[in-house]
Design a binder for these strands. Structure first.
Lengths: 339, 339
DNA sequence: CTGCTGCGTGAGAGCGCTCTCTGGGATGTC
DNA sequence: GACATCCCAGAGAGCGCTCTCACGCAGCAG
């Protein structure tokens, strides 16, 4: 093994364990994979031998024999690799890794470089991987769907293009946005604006829709909309435009926390107070939510759980267990000081 | 393969390629691994067969035969898994993945859960992995060093404990901090403060040392120091303390951009102007640097390159090629509007 | 006591690849 | 022209594991 490089530590094999325990390879294999039909006493002595030799099954050999890689790949779109710096992405990955840690699947990552898509393709299809996870914040990027007939795949987020048969896990954006906005209207705000996310992404669309339903229900107008692109800077600009309209605004629902933070800077720099003059609600409950002052009321996005669920779905898919094609994660509103 | 689950697409094997090309397995293998001693004409026809069958070598089989995994593992300390949301971490990983994409090493990740360290250990030592990368922002976390005799390992950041023989890649923090501070003193600032990072981490220490050297050289005092913990909120608090001292401050060097951003909020909320009243320089050149107003002058931390270098070092180590034990990455000062 | 069923164990054939070793053809030398 | 030399392709033995199959030994019925 790799120990060639360092001091050679002979790695124990099934064979050696078998020899030590005085049984056949097959029996050791049965014990390792805890097959039911092994004499308990024998199993015990095999286990002792395993411990004594510090035996770990060799993944490669196992994969080869089982014709299964026991690995899932996470595809990171290079073009959006800044996405990687997104707390959302990070948390999803964390959830995935956490779930996988309890299975015997290994997680590997590929950055899908534009330059050699066929390299990625052949890696995925070459039997190196049992399934694929695609994460792309807020975007519902399903550019990989063409593979989904060939390989189990699970996406984060609903695809924009309808009719796709792909498996995905998402948050109920519309409902959550509705609830968040209700918080504003219920507390008597009369001029509830929104800094919406990009209108070419499902979360941008759905959250705006949720806001719209809520303001209409409250008998308010739904024209106080400015669109950003989920970045802090765009949130600031959108807020600026909103305030420059010259009409009253006493509350704003931002499509995500970063844009809410952007809105903060503008509101405060104009000498307006949060929440007295303008109440603010965000979405995602990421690190921005608590690092701003006053602490942001926001929709808690169960991102780590979403990652776990993605991994769970994929593993079920791989193992042929029944699974929901789409999972919608519940959200909750975290009330802090900005309303 | 995995195709069992989806429609069975028979995956091509070496054998099949050999049959199609009318040669032996050995020859195909030679072509695949481009061994020099193959008749060019024969090689050509083998390549055609490979293309025709869309053949991809099976990793598991190859690993087994070569007794090498062709995989490197990235260890993510779970305890600090929020670290994962750190742009630093994200970029390092990106660099690693980018470098590895051009090799035939695969990147896999393990979250080292406290609960079962021996699982991680046996995974690493079970011949599943040729080398290990440990990344932990700013901390020089070398808690894994005990493995480094057994497995090639490369760390991000200098370990705090001296004398360790571990391989690592770091940025020249002290020199960079010195340069950044010089920028301030050279432009005539007379009261140059610093919001330093934690004094139990090498980067915190080294950056403070660099600042100290520069202010002394300029004949200024070195008492304008407040310590933060690299978070935005801590930067704000430190800046507050600095301003509350009641002594003049006309420039501040922050230990990282997040703290600089925190300092911004305090400076601006007191009605002071940046850079007219107080010039600010940060460190890292992360996304905060450009999202604040005015854009932050900061030390560009070549993080992606650092990741690449880590991967490169590890691969060299694995393959027995000569490598520097410690690599120090050069930095540069990015002048924006805050000075 | 013979013959059947059933359960647990061992034998052995691969999984797809690498790599050493051997053999045969082409080349070179005297 | 006979023999040594070289080079390149093929044969075949594994790498460590899984899994099917067959075997041997109870236990039970006839």
């Amino acid at each position: 093994m790799v120990q060639d490089a360092a001091g050679a530590r002979p790695v124990a094999t099934l064979e050696m364990v078998a020899a030590l325990a005085g049984v056949s390879r097959a029996t050791v294999s049965r014990v390792v994979n805890d097959s039911p039909s092994v004499d308990p006493e024998l199993a015990q002595s095999v286990k002792k031998a395993i411990l004594a030799l510090d035996y770990t099954p060799n993944r490669a050999a196992r994969s080869l024999a089982k014709r299964r890689a026991n690995a899932v790949t996470l595809i990171v779109p290079e073009s959006t690799s800044k996405v990687f710096a997104d707390p959302f992405f990070a948390s999803v990955v964390q959830g995935i890794a956490l779930y996988l840690a309890d299975t015997d699947y290994t997680l590997n990552m590929v950055i899908s470089s534009e330059s050699k898509p066929e390299k990625t393709r052949s890696f995925l299809l070459g039997g190196n991987v049992d399934g694929v996870l695609v994460v792309s914040h807020h975007s519902g990027d399903h550019s990989w769907t063409h593979l989904s007939g060939l390989l189990p795949m699970v996406f984060a987020g609903r695809p924009l293009i309808g009719g796709m048969e792909s498996y995905y896990v998402e948050v109920d954006n519309e409902q959550a946005a509705y609830n968040a906005t209700r918080q504003l209207t219920d507390s008597g705000r009369k001029h509830v604006a929104t800094v919406a996310g990009p209108q070419d992404m499902p979360p941008g669309l759905d959250r705006l829709a949720g806001w719209r339903t809520a303001v209409r229900e409250a008998g308010l107008g739904d024209s106080l909309v400015e669109v950003g692109d989920f970045t802090l800077a765009s949130g600031a600009r959108a807020m600026q435009r909103l305030l420059d309209r010259g009409v009253p605004v006493d509350a704003v629902f931002a499509g995500n926390d970063q844009m809410a933070a952007g809105a903060y800077t503008v509101i405060q720099s104009r000498g307006l107070r949060i929440p007295e003059d303008i109440a603010v609600v965000g979405f995602d409950d990421d690190s921005f939510a608590t690092s701003v002052t006053p602490a942001l009321t926001t929709v808690h996005h169960p991102i780590v759980e979403l990652g776990k669920k993605m991994a769970e779905t994929l593993v079920n898919l791989i193992e042929g267990k029944p699974t929901e094609r789409v999972t919608r994660m519940p959200t909750s509103l975290v009330i802090r000081d900005s309303v």
